[in-house]
Amino acid sequence: MGDIKAVLNGCEDYWTLQDRAAMPLLFKMTVCVDIRVVVPGAWVAFSYSSIYTPRPELGLEGDDEALYGWLLRVRHRFPIRLSSTQWHRVCLRRDVLRNSFSLEVDGKMVAERTVIAQAIPPSGSLWLGCRPRDQPPGAMQGEIELYLFRMWPDLGDHGLCEDGTVIGWNSQYWGVTSAKATQRDPRLLCDRRRLRRGPRAFQSVNSGVYSDTTPVARLFSPSFEVPSTTTTSSPLIATPVTQRSNQTSKVTGSPLLNCNISQLCSSKSAYFWMSISVNAKNGNKTEKDVHNLVSKAFGCKGDAAKKGTGLIDFCQSDRQLQSLQVNCSAKRNISETTCDVLLQLSYAVSACELQHAGVSALQQAGDQQIQATIIGEVERVGLEIICSQR
């Protein structure tokens, strides 16, 4: 399918991995896909989910503000924006034994995070594009084109047109919802007719002239915005405690890391992550208003703490609950959106207890102008886990 691209408009059209190509258990993996944002807005490049959970075990999304990588049902935000109408090659790399999760754009490593968790469960479902059930409420849907989705069971560098050994860009792997979700384009990089012409220079879809030996960093447009702080390894992580791995196998040639994960077992200063759905009347609320709502609900102050069923227990004996971060898909003019919330509790409780109390607290903190509800499960996570080579 060297001359075929996926054309994905919102959640109307998508591709699905066929049953004959089951996802195996991998302790190392590289996933790459070429992306072109045609119409700005929220978009989903791909999502992989096991049969046990509706949230992605692995996925890649984006909008006008950032890229988002999913790993084991936790969404990681990378403050990188892809330019519209340009092709970009985006890769996610996961190394279970080294506890790493990284993002690469156009051949350059732009972020690496420490994630202490197990391998991604096998035999799930893989979608290219947005599944209708996962359409974010209120967000303006973008339109994207995808090309060369490929997966390998390693962390190596692979050729521009090298097909994936686990999953490749081949018609035998994919099913398409409709004819309009696929399009033939002879200008694509790995069209066989183009490759047969030999090492002569050719015109890319980005209107630049390249040869077949051009490095990927030059072949794709550098028109993406990356703050300088994201080019180095970042210690900011969101690590589900329930996903911690006991894997002790050694990797030849790769140094093992010694990570201080004591905070994940501590009875004090526990961190929790949740996703919330927000509905606002008149569509004039901002992310700051959502932050204030969450602070009111979980800050052990006012009527929310007095009336919230179960929350009053968390507000006793110096069990102070503080909102650390609220990150919403929509930043302003909010009518409907989803937000990620990171909380810190000065005394550890079970995620189940916090979820039960949080449902009531958010209900009590809301008013006629803005309401929020928890989506899915609250998870205990680690923050700023530091690793060093042994």
Rank of each mutant, 00 (worst) to 15 (best):
N170C: 05
T85N: 12
S335E: 10
C32W: 03
D340P: 01
D13R: 14
S233K: 12
F46N: 00
I386L: 14
L148T: 06
H291I: 04
D191C: 14
T182Y: 01
L195V: 12
S245T: 15
T165H: 11
A119P: 11
S171R: 04
V278M: 09
M140K: 14
F220D: 01
V31N: 00
V166A: 05
R131I: 02
K288A: 14
V349G: 04
D19E: 14
D157Y: 03
I370R: 06
K306C: 08
C259T: 04
A179E: 15
T337S: 08
E353A: 15
I80R: 03
T214P: 01
S211Q: 09
F298H: 04
A111H: 10
L321R: 02
N206T: 07
F298A: 04
G138C: 10
G299Y: 01
L383M: 10
R36Q: 14
T53L: 09
A372Y: 08
Y347H: 15
V166W: 05
G382E: 06
G10I: 01
T309D: 13
V31Y: 02
E104F: 11
A348Y: 07
Y147K: 03
T286N: 07
R75Y: 01
S221G: 01
V294G: 02
I334V: 13
V326F: 06
Q263G: 10
G175M: 08
A119C: 13
A45C: 08
L324D: 11
V110N: 06
Q18T: 15
D318R: 08
N292C: 08
P153Y: 03
Q18W: 01
Q363H: 14
N333V: 00
W273S: 15
L195A: 14
S335D: 12
N246K: 07
F149A: 02
K268P: 00
L264S: 07
T114G: 02
G59R: 02
T373Q: 14
D191Q: 05
E112G: 13
Q322S: 12
A361M: 06
L25Q: 12
